Amino acid sequence: MSIDGPILVTGAAGFIGSFVAARLAQTGNKVVAVDNFNSYYTPVLKHRRVEALLAPHGISCEKLELSDMDQVTALFDRVRPAYVIHLAAQAGVRYSIENPSAYIQSNLVGFSNILEACRKWKPQHLIYASSSSVYGANHKVPFQEDDQTDEPVSLYAATKKSNELMAYSYSHLFGLPATGLRFFTVYGPWGRPDMAYFSFSQKMLKGEPIPVFAKGELRRDFTYIDDIVEGIVRVLTKPQSGDTGKAPHAIFNIGNHQAVRVLDFISTLESVLGVQAQMNFLPMQPGDVPATYADTTRLQEWVGFAPSTPLQDGLARFKDWLLGWNAQHHT
């Protein structure tokens, strides 16, 4: 799928961003990649993603701080993007309790700068990352896009909900076609070391105990990275029309439509790694939610696709990558 004009990908040294940028470049698109390479987790992993996933397609990843409006303005003025895929964000639920200002700067100030630049330079479509966290402790499952999302249980979730409201207002006021994607627990090769599947795997391979919260009864909708990328690429060229008198704004869940109990996830990980887990049971943490479970009907109807990679298959691919990564980096 080749698109006319440059595609700007923010957070392109991040997990999802690097895969999206690589996929778009593979299909002959001009991709402009930016990231701030912050140290929320090791920047070594971010630089290696750029080397392994972007550089082979001739993409370099420019260091840029989105919370600095002057830098954003200069970027848009130079690139004039036809499409913007905004994946840069401060991630992590628990870290938002310890370091709230990082979320305000990245997720609110940074996003408002992107919206202002889009208002001025008018790309054909802005796609931005939201999160399943916006559903809070919703007990109605699976989660549908029209469910109530105004009781966030973490600041991270509050910033993601704010992004949806901010984008809607720009769509309404300025006719900016914008789509928010609520990602559900994304995993796979080159993933984030702070995520459970990654940190559990590392601890299990070293024979260390893993922390299991709420008796392992929490449920998560694990979504494989390739499915996330496919969803983003399909939505990219299909913005909402503003012709109906409504704002050209949409929200879609992108999840695997499977709520997997953490204990079952651990047993799958045990079979994939060939290692028995030692579990350290702990109480539920502040900011955590009992379950995430995506209804993907709306995405399926809009672009003819919804994620479906089985957890066992996705974790097996992650394991193959992880063993190579560990051998290379002696972790």
Rank of each mutant, 00 (worst) to 15 (best):
N253V: 02
Y170F: 13
A137N: 12
R192Q: 11
W121C: 04
M204K: 05
E301G: 08
R49D: 08
R261P: 03
Q278C: 07
R219P: 00
A129V: 00
E230I: 00
F213T: 14
Y40T: 13
Y170A: 05
E230A: 02
Q105P: 04
G287D: 02
I104D: 07
D320C: 08
N38H: 10
I97M: 10
E217H: 12
F19H: 15
L273N: 03
R317G: 14
V93I: 09
H172Q: 15
D146E: 14
R220G: 07
E270S: 11
S130Q: 06
G304H: 03
A117W: 01
I16G: 03
V289D: 03
F318S: 10
S18A: 14
V141M: 11
L108N: 09
V289F: 01
A294G: 05
V233H: 01
D146T: 14
A55V: 04
G11S: 08
D147N: 14
V31E: 03
A117M: 01
L87I: 04
V260L: 12
D194Q: 14
V229I: 07
D313S: 13
A178W: 00
V272C: 11
D264E: 12
A214Q: 10
R48Y: 14
P177N: 08
S171L: 01
D243Y: 09
L64T: 05
F174E: 06
G304A: 08
T73K: 10
Q285T: 01
S308F: 10
G17R: 02
L75T: 06
S267A: 11
T27R: 12
A250S: 15
V141A: 13
E164V: 03
L299R: 07
Y135V: 03
V50M: 07
K63C: 09
A178P: 10
S60F: 07
F252R: 10
H57N: 11
G304S: 10
L263M: 15
E208K: 13
L173N: 13
L173S: 13
S133K: 01
S101R: 06
I97A: 13
V79Y: 01
H249Y: 15
E230G: 09
L282F: 10
S308W: 09
Y40D: 14
D147Q: 12
K140T: 14
I251C: 12
Q124D: 11
Q71K: 11
R182V: 09
T244G: 12
L108F: 06
A316F: 08
K238N: 13
S271W: 01
Y187D: 10
P152V: 04
P307V: 04
